[in-house]
């Protein structure tokens, strides 16, 4: 069973984010990126499947600052191959990322065949789409998203998808398939720094050149701004009855009742 994992980095929201001078995008001078949490879960799910069934796990990423650390960490965790797509400047749109990944997967000779392509079901910067479905569409493979559990058998992956309120659904997906991972069965494993260092010494990261793709134009950011945050709760006043009523109102307004 061979698995390809697609991973990208997103802005680290632990850091203060600022709007750039164009008023439409993030200020990149202080931007720090971190791997998309769900992609990390996708990698973990792939490694769990490898632990169970054997086979190879290949990780494909877009180049980014500090991406080598991410890739070596993945190698230290048991990933077999780490490949990065070079020659892309920070990819702002998910559509572009989809095109880049799609092209590279189709054109790089030894990435396919695989049984599964796993990637995070969503990322915090996915403004104009989610990655997994369009890639599945390009490849003509089946797709299922919001997956939290995968079991592999010959030619079929049985996956569990999360709905709401703890209810989940079980699906059979014929392989090869693309899955959008919501969470791996276990939290991503910890790999000690020493092992990452050892991987840096003994393993290599492969590179492929980014194909030329035209950027998507149908979604355009006009303006970006920090939402107003007061840093303090909005206080509800009145008698217990009154506040209960007010809470009810706002729960209803938020679609929570």
């Amino acid at each position: 069973m061979n698995i390809l994992v697609l991973m990208k980095v997103v802005p680290d929201v632990v850091e203060e984010l600022e709007v750039g001078s164009d008023g439409k995008s993030l200020d990149t001078s202080f931007l720090r990126t971190i791997i998309n949490e769900r992609d990390d879960h996708a990698l973990e799910q792939a490694l769990l499947l490898k632990d169970k069934h054997g086979g190879k796990v290949t990780l494909l990423t877009l180049d980014a600052p500090d991406i080598d650390d991410v890739l070596f960490t993945a190698l230290a965790k048991g990933t077999d191959r780490a490949v990065k797509i070079c020659g892309v400047e920070s990819v702002q749109s998910t559509q572009t990322a989809v095109k880049l990944f799609g092209d590279v997967i189709a054109k790089t000779p030894d990435l396919l065949p695989v049984d599964l392509i796993l990637t995070g079901v969503s990322a915090i910067d996915d403004l104009d789409g989610l990655m997994a479905a369009p890639i599945a569409h390009q490849l003509g493979w089946p797709y299922t998203g919001v997956v939290t559990h995968v079991t592999l058998a010959d030619k079929t992956a049985t996956v569990i998808k999360e709905f709401a309120g703890g209810v989940r659904g079980e699906y059979d997906v014929p392989t090869p398939a693309v899955l959008g991972i919501q969470a791996a069965e276990k939290p991503p494993r910890y790999v000690p720094v020493a092992k990452v260092r050892a991987a840096m010494k003994s393993q290599t990261i492969e590179t492929v050149d980014a194909p030329a793709v035209e950027a998507a134009t149908t979604v355009e950011v006009q303006q970006m701004a920090k939402p107003q945050v007061t840093g303090h709760a909005e206080m509800l006043e009145g008698s217990a009855e009154d506040v209960a009523g007010k809470i009810c109102e706002l729960l209803a307004k938020r679609g929570l009742l």
Partner: peptide, 20 residues
């Protein structure tokens, strides 16, 4: 630790040390 066997909370703390 070398086997990655530790509580999730410890793992989070270590990841935080590593990154931040």
């Amino acid at each position: 630790v070398s086997e990655g066997q530790m509580a999730k909370t410890v793992q989070d703390a270590l990841n935080n040390f590593n990154r931040y």
